[in-house]
Nucleic acid binder design. Sequence first.
DNA 1: GGTAGTAGCCTAGCTCTCCTAGGCAAACGA
DNA 2: TCGTTTGCCTAGGAGAGCTAGGCTACTACC
Lengths: 189, 189
Amino acid sequence: MVRAKVTVERLTLAAAELADEVGVENVTVAALARQFGVKDASLYFHLKNAHDLRVRIALLALAELADRVAAALAGRAGKDALVAFADAYRDYAREHPGRYAAMQIDLDPETAAASAGVRHAEMTRAILRGYRLSEPDQTDAVRMMHSTFHGFVSLEKTGGFRHTPRPTDDSWSRTLDALDAVLTNWPSR
Amino acid sequence: MVRAKVTVERLTLAAAELADEVGVENVTVAALARQFGVKDASLYFHLKNAHDLRVRIALLALAELADRVAAALAGRAGKDALVAFADAYRDYAREHPGRYAAMQIDLDPETAAASAGVRHAEMTRAILRGYRLSEPDQTDAVRMMHSTFHGFVSLEKTGGFRHTPRPTDDSWSRTLDALDAVLTNWPSR
DNA sequence: GGTAGTAGCCTAGCTCTCCTAGGCAAACGA
DNA sequence: TCGTTTGCCTAGGAGAGCTAGGCTACTACC
């Protein structure tokens, strides 16, 4: 009998794929065990508990997304960089709805600090270098950017835009135009 | 023996309060039954299933929020109206985190169309009358506004802003300033 | 005011998930 | 070769979701 070579990494990856297919809330230890041809109890050798599994999906997703954004950002500046960041973010969320949803569970502070989430913050700030904003405007702008991206993607997914026929792609690019405009001309107090 | 007078309305309200205390994901038919001093199986006379319960919480929340926003909007226009809307939205989300989370579950199209969600859309459009935007800019602006509000509130709740010391209240009001600025001067193609 | 119907609860019982405890066997290092 | 560790197993309990079917109390109607 050949051992199945179950590792935390393989479990996490399989769980992430499962999440994209059936949603994070349906990612269950039992289902994962079935996929690996193993009893559910056996997985508790690798995982602390079910919540631990979801956290691992979240961390995987944060790292993957950070990689994508970094790649998209390479060699760009100003509005180019803004759009590249935004598109990479939205594309990832649409390709991996389960992973994206997992990213929204709140991590405890230490875990969050050690996650790839900090890379996002750094990269967002990097974009703003093209817009010459100083603190605390920069922090406010980062928060607004992130809010806009996350809010749009989130509402698009849950169908919040369905009642109007206009293609969401169009609204998305116009929203980015608006964001670029307001960053270029950030209102002073 | 006095009958407990369990009705769908009372169940939904109790469930909503439970959601605010322990989170929607922990709102269980069994827990609700315990609160009413009744066996869990009995509640299936009033509810279709557990998902039905959560949907009812969502619809309640949408209606409550629409009422609040409507009240906040009365007699205001322009930026005043924008800020009043936004604050009402954010305050509701912070006072009722469970209800707010329930609002994010995706309703099937018919349910959504019959919900108070449409009132939100109408009121958002009403705000934009102060900014003189014509279609399709208006739709794009509505979507951007909603995205910003939802994104900010959502990230604030899950701790997405925790890594920077700046008070979120300040970022919030500056974000609204920025939103007002970009609505006033919506970039033309 | 008796009686039929229905509303509203019950018990019993199934399935599924999460998780713990304790056991056994394969792989590996000394 | 012989422990030791690693990685799976079985057994089993708690709690959630849900169905089927039964009992009781209130309601309405003749």
